[in-house]
Computed example of a mutant assay.
Amino acid sequence: MDVQRAQDIYDSKDMIAVRLDGKPVWIEHVDAANGMATVQIGSRPTDVQTVGVDRLVEEKH
């Protein structure tokens, strides 16, 4: 995924499924300048990682 798409998903009011290494994640913040995103993994609010947006995959339905 590119930075702009990650930002679009973050800004969207719709629920858009995103995965990191096959696991569902929620985008909590996008750092466009560095191409990074902070994501919550699964449903645990304490399980947060900052990763390159290129590792995120949008699920297509």
Rank of each mutant, 00 (worst) to 15 (best):
M1D: 11
D2E: 07
V3W: 06
Q4C: 11
Q4Y: 10
Q4F: 14
Q4W: 13
R5G: 04
R5A: 11
Q7H: 11
Q7E: 13
D8R: 06
I9R: 03
I9A: 07
I9K: 02
Y10K: 15
D11K: 08
S12R: 01
S12P: 02
K13M: 12
K13N: 15
K13W: 12
D14K: 13
D14F: 09
D14P: 01
M15P: 02
M15G: 09
M15F: 09
I16T: 08
I16A: 04
I16P: 00
I16E: 04
A17R: 12
V18G: 02
V18P: 00
V18S: 01
V18M: 03
V18R: 01
V18A: 05
R19D: 06
R19A: 07
R19Q: 13
L20N: 02
G22H: 04
G22F: 07
G22A: 11
K23F: 13
K23V: 08
K23I: 09
K23E: 13
K23T: 07
P24S: 10
P24V: 08
P24Q: 10
V25C: 05
V25Y: 00
V25G: 00
W26F: 09
I27P: 00
E28H: 04
H29K: 10
V30S: 07
V30D: 02
V30C: 01
V30W: 00
D31V: 00
D31R: 00
A32L: 03
A32F: 01
G35N: 05
G35H: 05
G35W: 00
G35Y: 01
M36E: 10
A37N: 05
A37E: 02
T38W: 00
T38D: 04
V39W: 01
Q40L: 06
Q40N: 10
Q40F: 01
G42R: 03
S43E: 11
R44S: 15
R44M: 13
P45G: 12
T46V: 14
T46N: 15
T46M: 07
T46Q: 12
D47V: 02
D47T: 10
D47Y: 03
Q49R: 13
Q49L: 12
T50A: 08
T50K: 12
T50C: 07
G52A: 14
D54L: 12
D54R: 09
R55Q: 15
R55D: 11
L56V: 07
L56Q: 00
V57Q: 15
V57C: 12
V57A: 14
E58Y: 08
E58P: 07
E59N: 14
E59I: 15
K60A: 15
H61Y: 15
